[in-house]
Structures are given as C-alpha cells and as structure tokens.
Design a protein around this nucleic acid. Structure first.
Length: 462
RNA sequence: GUGGUUGUAGCUCAGCUGGUUAGAGCGUCGGUUUGUGGUACCGAAAGUCGCCGGUUCGAACCCGGUCUUCCACCCCA
C-alpha cells in the first residue's frame, strides 16, 4: 500500500452531511444579503503580493500565505541577498503572489479598478474562502470562508443601522437566538487616548483595552504600563474599566469623559445615533450592546466597529465582525470613498449551531423514499413510480442491486436506516401481481399498501 | 512566531515501572432466522502502535527530530 494520505494543517474535508449543513448557513446568509439589496462579486483566490502586504499590520504580513514564483525563482536572488538570510527581503524576490487573507482588501482593490463602472453607493456581498498561515485551534482554520457585505460610497450612518438589522435578520433566520452585537467606535477610542494623554499609543492602548474581559482590569493596566503608557494616563482611563448600565447610560458617561475631545465627542454622537435608531426600529432576536473595550485588530477601521458574540454559554470567539473604514481605497489611490461592512464567520457559526443542535432535523436526509429491489421485474415497476415521485420533486431512489436472499434484503433495510430514509417502498411478488406497492414508514413502523394507479395518494402523505 | 498537549484496528479508547503471538466496545463482513431493518446468538477479517532516527539483549512504552491534534500566548472569522 502507498503511504497514508493526509491533508494540510488547518484544512478540512467536508462530508456530505457537513456540506449540506454549511450550505444551509450559506443560503440563509446569501438570501438576506440579497433581500438587503447587496450584489454578489467574486475576486481571485490570489492577488499580487503588494495588494495584500502591509494592509493588515506586521502580524498580518506574517500570516499571509505567499506563493512561490514559477520557474527557476532563485536565479533572481543574488549571492549577497541569499547569504543575508533576510527572509522578508528574499521573499519579495521569490514570491510575487499571495493567497487572499480576507475579502475586504481585495474588495477595495476591486472598487478602485472598477470605479468607472460602479454606481455608488455600491452594496456588494462576497462569499469565498480566505487563507491564513495561523496556528489552528478550535474554530480557527488556515482555510475558511468569509461571508462579507460592504457598502462603499456613503457616509450615512444609516448603513451602520442597516448592518445591525442584517446581523439580526441572519441570526434570527438561523434560529440562533441571543447573539450580542457589540458596537464601538474608533473615534471614541481615539478620543479616549487623546483625553488621557496617550494619543501616540493609540494602537497599544486599544489592543490592551480589548483584552479586558480576558485578563481583567489589572492585567490591562499592566500591559498598558509595559507599552509605555504613563500611570497618570491609565488612571484617567480607569472609568472605562467599570462602564456599566444601559446603552444610553454608557453613552452619557462617555460623553462626559470625552467633552474635551472633538473626535471623541463625534464618535459618541455617531454611536448614539445608531443605538437610538435601532432602539426605535427594534430587533428580532439579537441584542445590541455598547462595548468600549471592543477594538479589533484591523487598523483600517475609522468609525463604527462591530463584533458578534455567540449566545452566552457557548465557548467560541466572535462569529462575525466589521466596521467602517474611511480610507481603505485611499491605499489604492481612490480618495474620499467611505466604506462600511460586516463579515460572518461561517465555520464558527457552524460549530455554534452544531453545539446548540440548531440545524433543522431532516437537513441531512438525502433521500425521502427508497425502493427496495426484490427482483428485476419488480425493480422495473419501481422505476415507473420513482419517475413520478421525482417529477413531484421528491427525493426518491431505487436500491440498484436485486436482493437474491434474505441477507441481501436485510442489507437494503440497513442501508435505508443508515441513510435516515423515512419511507421504504416494497414491491415484491405479491405487490407486483396486484399492481400495488407497500410503503413502510420507518419512524412509525407502520405499513400501508397503495394501488400503483394512485401514486398521488402516497405523494400527499409525504 | 513562543510555550504546552495529543497521535494505538473504519470509529471511541485500554495497554501497569520497556520483556515473549498489541486488546475491548461499536462498526464492517460471514453464518443461523426461507417477504421486513433497528433487538438476539455464533464466527471472521482488520493495526509497519503518526513518521524518521537513537538508547537497549529487547520499545507502543525511554530520548531526539518531524508531522498532526487540541490548548494558552500572539492575533483573529
């Protein structure tokens, strides 16, 4: 035998049952994207490296899968560079393409390249795999799907409102009740940093703050100190650590804290508008909550920040996220196009639905009716009925091999059972003679015989 | 990228401080019951003990490397 095959770290095969369940999620997300007026686009799996590199920070660059140049790529590397062992410099010589890391940056590239054919504001959705050279963990893979919806070309905060509604609509359709849509605003974070005198440490400040629920107040303070934020600054920021109460109470507290910062005040105002509008419109099942500690790593966000947390009690990282980015297309030379978007983490949503047992019961039922095959002439009769059932859009099939004995007959029953087929149709000698067929309802264990002329009576039962 | 963890029949796992032919349950296959499965009985097949190397008279068990799994960092969907 050949060596046992294996698949690459962080990748998966999907079984028929898994694919069906994944498609169930995809379909609900896609349907809602369309209902909200988003249009689909697709972009290539790999991009030119310089489209991606430097867009996700230092950490991001490390996690981008690079594609080796074709041909004798080492010839372009001179001896000095080769001997320098400088990986990043050599990489840029031997690799000019990279696998897409997310869908947002390729979308920004798309917008810039197609700016003359796009009617703004442009609402697009995109459901495609992305790749990250991350170390896998539960719910973290090296290949996974993102389901993104973005709007570019509109500064209106109504877009943010709409995304909250979109999240609510999708998770409600998925019967995943109790998710929390957490919101924050980059301007608030910047305002806080400004007010406490840590303007130059904005990133460090937010990254540390983001860990509050994980490492606690003391841990956050310690990390901020290590990053060079002064004790006085941290002291000034301490009201943040205990920000509680309703959304509007938190907004009021923030407003007070940020009176001295024009930018911060703007952020509070924006967030207030979104919260109040949603509050007036109402949500189906999701909760909307302010979380000032929400920062998210992507440093291109400039306004609203979204993150969706799974219902309480489910141990899972965020199942969606997004935000507003004013300058994204600026990187590619198109100024003044504001964008805002959200993403659904399909693979994680799958794990959550599986854990909470929320997939529809009969979702992986590949067949509704299986016809036993008890002989050639009986099988031919079966095929006639199967044709009718299939025309009625009923998943029906015939067991292909005729049972020659009891054992083989049992095998057919077992086959049906393993496939979760709810109805078995038996046409044996008796039925063949009488021009009838017998239906066995597996769940109930009951049986009923129909005349072959009255298939519609059986169809009605399904 | 850092630290730890895991890897034994198709699946879930046993295998004590290294010692003769590596075990169980489930599943699979075969047999008994001669138009009905999921329950019962009998039997069988199936593993280079992740991979490579080392220590040893002898290694699934010890050591090193490597891959994989999961976890904590980092970061993130």
């Amino acid at each position: 035998m050949a060596k046992k095959p294996s698949i690459a770290k962080g990748t998966r095969d999907f079984t028929p049952s898994e694919v069906v369940k994944r498609n169930y999620i995809f379909d609900i997300i896609k349907k809602n994207f369309q209902i909200f007026g988003f249009q689909p686009i697709e972009t290539p799996s790999f991009e030119n490296s310089d489209t991606l590199m430097g867009k996700y920070g230092e950490e991001g660059d490390r996690l981008i899968f690079k594609i080796l140049n074709s041909g004798d790529y080492l010839r372009k590397v001179d001896d000095v560079l080769y001997n320098s062992k400088d990986s990043s410099k050599i990489t840029s010589k031997i690799s000019e393409k990279a696998l897409r890391y997310d869908l947002t940056v390729p979308f920004a590239r798309y917008v810039v390249m197609h700016q003359n054919e796009i009617d703004f504001p442009f609402k697009r959705f995109q459901i495609q795999p992305v790749w990250r050279a991350d170390r896998p963990q539960k719910g973290r893979f090296r290949e996974f799907f993102q389901c993104d919806a973005d709007v570019v070309g509109s500064d209106s905060l109504l877009q943010e409102v709409e995304f909250v509604q979109l999240y609510d609509a999708v998770f409600s359709d998925l019967k995943l009740n109790g998710v929390t849509i957490k919101m924050n605003n980059r301007k608030i974070l910047a305002g806080i940093a400004e007010v406490i005198g840590a303007k130059d440490n904005l990133i460090d400040f937010t990254v540390a703050l983001d860990k509050l629920d994980k490492i606690g107040e003391e841990g956050v303070k310690k990390e901020m100190l290590e990053k060079g934020i002064s004790e006085a600054s941290i002291e000034k920021a301490s009201p943040l650590f205990n920000l509680t109460g309703t959304n509007s109470e938190q907004l009021d507290a923030l407003q007070t804290l940020l009176t001295a910062s024009e930018q911060g005040a703007k952020g509070v105002e924006e967030l207030r508008f979104i919260i109040e509008t949603i509050s007036a419109l109402g949500l189906q099942t999701a909760k909307l909550a302010i979380d000032v500690t929400l920062a998210r790593g992507l440093n291109y966000y400039t306004g609203a920040i979204f993150e969706v947390a799974a219902p309480e009690g489910v141990k899972m990282g965020s199942i969606g996220g997004g935000g507003r980015y004013d300058d994204l297309t600026g990187i590619f030379g198109l100024k003044d196009v504001s964008g805002v978007g959200i993403s659904f983490g399909l693979d994680r949503i799958y794990l959550v639905l599986e854990e909470l047992d929320l997939f529809p019961e009969a979702i992986d039922q590949s067949l509704k009716v299986l016809f036993m095959n008890l002989g050639e002439k009986e099988a031919f009769e079966s095929l006639k009925l199967i044709t009718i059932l299939r025309k009625n859009r009923i998943k029906a099939d015939l067991y292909p091999d005729s049972a020659k004995n009891q054992k083989q007959e049992n095998k057919q029953f077992k086959f049906a059972k393993n496939k979760n087929v709810p109805f078995i149709v038996i046409i044996g000698e008796e039925e063949f003679k009488n021009n009838t067929f017998t239906v066995k309802n597996i769940e109930k264990g009951s049986q009923q015989t129909y005349s072959c002329d009255k298939v519609e009576e059986f169809v009605k039962e399904l």
